[in-house]
Amino acid sequence: MTTLGVGPADAASPVEPGERRRTTPARGTRTGSLPPLRGLLPLVVFLASWQLVASRLSPFFPPPSDWASALLDLSRSGVLLPAAFATVITFLLGLVAASVLGTVLGLAVGASARTDRALQPTLEYARAMPPAAVVPIATLLLGFTGTMKVVVVTSAAIWSILLNTRSGVRQLNPVMFEMARSLQLGRFERVRKVTFPALLPSIFLGVRVAAPVALVITLLVEILTQVDGVGALIAQSQRNYEFAQGYGLILVAGLFALLVNALVSMLQARVMRHRPPA
């Protein structure tokens, strides 16, 4: 439902709540001019001066060098890697589940106006539900388990995929399917060779928005429930007043987010290879 600050909060994305008219999936990567690297200067200056004056600040703001050493300690004690692994697994499972379910549901509501109408209020409501509110309910029903984490992530990441698939289905040209039938393609072949590849850009556009959401929600569940993962470590460092460790882990979360964005962009470039430019 929300990008929670990571990833493209782009105006062209057709996932805006209720923006049913804005359904043209913006094809292709939003190349937009990348900002020049010299723009990093303020951040560097900021961090450097933080490093210099940190000792005179309160203990709330340990110098960046401490963040690094805290992280090193964490990884030496064998905590960091398993946590990172747990986060990645939850993120991936949630994203995959969201992709599969979102595509199937998107196909269902996209292909039939009646199904769409029938499910619309329910889906609309479910979508408006802040994922944070879902967490206590999920722990209530599923316990403090890995399954619970994946379910929460899926329920938050599914929307952009569902909506993009739906608008993708609606934009499919029936001629494509008539052509396939006229060429004697069987039902299964039509799905594999026509429907799926035709929908792939739409589905992927959804995944592109869903991936950062899935990561953020993974961290959210972990912070709230403290079931494994980097998020749980972040919450623990708060409990133990480990400021430096907290900052270090936030950095790790940021790195994850950058990595996810880069991966998604790469995947998207692959998916959109050989497609007509927008």
Partner: peptide, 23 residues
């Protein structure tokens, strides 16, 4: 009943009838 064997339909909308992801 359904597209007959040995008969092929040629559409006016060629752009939509060609799959853009195939050569």
């Amino acid at each position: 009943a359904g597209p007959p064997q040995d008969v092929v339909f040629v559409f006016q909308n060629y752009a939509a009838s060609l799959l853009p992801w195939r050569t």
